[in-house]
C-alpha cells in the first residue's frame, strides 16, 4: 500500500529550518492496522499528514498504490483524499450546524453522488457505528463518543482504502475510548481496510498489527504483530526521552 523512502519534511520558522521528519523509510501493507507512537513533538502527526496527502514532503518519495504523492500537485492530492482516504480527527471536526447524518453525507458531496444515494449511504454508515437512531441530532446534542462515532462514519462512508486517525481517543473518557477502540478494531477486521492511527494510548496501539515509534523525526522502532505484553513495554528501553524536535510543534502549528 505504502512505500516511503528517505522522506523528510522541513519547516521554516523565523528564518531557521527545522525538521519534522528526517529520512523516514516505511512500508505499510494493504489491510494493516498501523499505530504510530512517539513523544510529543516527535513528528508522528506530520508523518500521518504525509501519508494522508495533507502535506507534501520536502524530499523523498511516498508511494501510495503505485503513485508518488510527493510529486503530485494540490489538485491531484485532493483527488486522492477524495477517493482513497478517510480521516478521523482528535477533535472530531464535525460541522456544528449539520446533523450527524448530514455530516456523514457531507463526505459524499465531493464525489457527486445523488442526494438519495448520499442519504442511504450515510444511514448505513451511521448504522455501522451504532448511531442509526442519532442521525438527526446535532453534534452539540451528542456525547463525545457519539461525535467520534459520527466522524468515523464520515470517514467510512466513502469506503476508502485507508483510514487515517489522529489521536481518535485523545478527547474521550476511558469507557468511551474502549468503545471507539473496539469499533475501529471491528471495522478493520470486517472491512480489511488499512488503518493508520497516531496515538499516545498503548491500549489503542495494542490492537494494531504494526506499530512504529517515532522520535526526532525518525522511525526508531518498527514492530510487527506486537504482543499484548509488548504493548505495555513499548517503546523499548532508551526511547522514552523527549524528542529533540519539540520546537517543531509551533512551527507546524501544533503537535508534530
Amino acid at each position: 500500500m505504502y512505500e516511503l523512502h528517505a522522506v523528510t519534511k522541513r519547516y521554516s520558522r523565523k528564518g531557521k529550518q527545522v525538521s519534522a521528519l528526517d529520512g523516514v523509510d516505511l512500508t505499510i501493507d494493504d489491510g494493516e492496522f498501523l499505530a504510530i507512537q512517539g513523544p510529543t513533538g516527535s513528528g508522528k502527526t506530520t508523518l500521518l499528514e504525509v501519508l494522508g496527502g495533507l502535506v507534501r514532503p520536502s524530499s523523498g518519495s511516498v508511494l501510495c498504490a503505485g503513485t508518488d504523492m510527493a510529486r503530485l500537485g494540490e489538485a491531484r492530492l485532493g483527488d486522492l483524499r477524495r477517493t482513497m482516504f478517510g480521516f478521523v480527527f482528535q477533535h472530531f471536526n464535525l460541522i456544528p450546524t449539520l446533523s450527524a447524518q448530514e455530516n456523514v453525507e457531507l463526505a459524499l458531496v465531493p464525489t457527486g453522488v445523488s442526494s438519495a444515494e448520499r442519504r442511504s449511504r450515510a444511514l448505513s454508515a451511521l448504522a455501522e457505528v451504532g448511531l442509526e437512531r442519532r442521525g438527526g441530532h446535532l453534534p452539540s446534542e451528542m456525547s463525545g463518543g457519539e461525535q467520534q462515532r459520527t466522524a468515523i462514519a464520515r470517514a467510512l462512508v466513502r469506503s476508502p482504502r485507508v483510514i487515517l486517525a489522529d489521536e481518535p481517543t485523545g478527547n474521550l473518557d476511558e469507557r468511551t475510548r474502549d468503545e471507539i477502540i473496539d469499533l475501529l478494531t471491528a471495522l478493520w477486521r470486517e472491512r480489511e481496510q488499512t488503518i493508520i492511527v497516531v496515538t499516545h494510548d498503548s491500549t489503542v496501539a495494542g490492537q494494531a498489527s504494526q506499530r512504529v515509534w517515532v522520535e526526532g523525526g525518525r522511525i526508531r522502532v518498527h514492530e510487527d504483530r506486537p504482543s499484548t505484553e509488548g504493548v505495555m513495554s513499548f517503546p523499548p528501553e532508551g526511547f522514552t526521552q523527549p524528542a529533540p524536535v519539540v520546537a517543531l510543534a509551533g512551527a507546524a502549528g501544533g503537535e508534530s
Binding site: E74, R81, N93, L106, A107
Partner: peptide
C-alpha cells in the same frame, strides 16, 4: 479555519 481545513481534508475542492 478548522472547518474549512476539514472540508479540504475530506476532499472538497477549493472552488467549492
Amino acid at each position: 479555519v478548522r472547518e474549512f481545513g476539514t472540508l479540504k481534508a475530506i476532499g472538497f475542492r477549493s472552488r467549492r
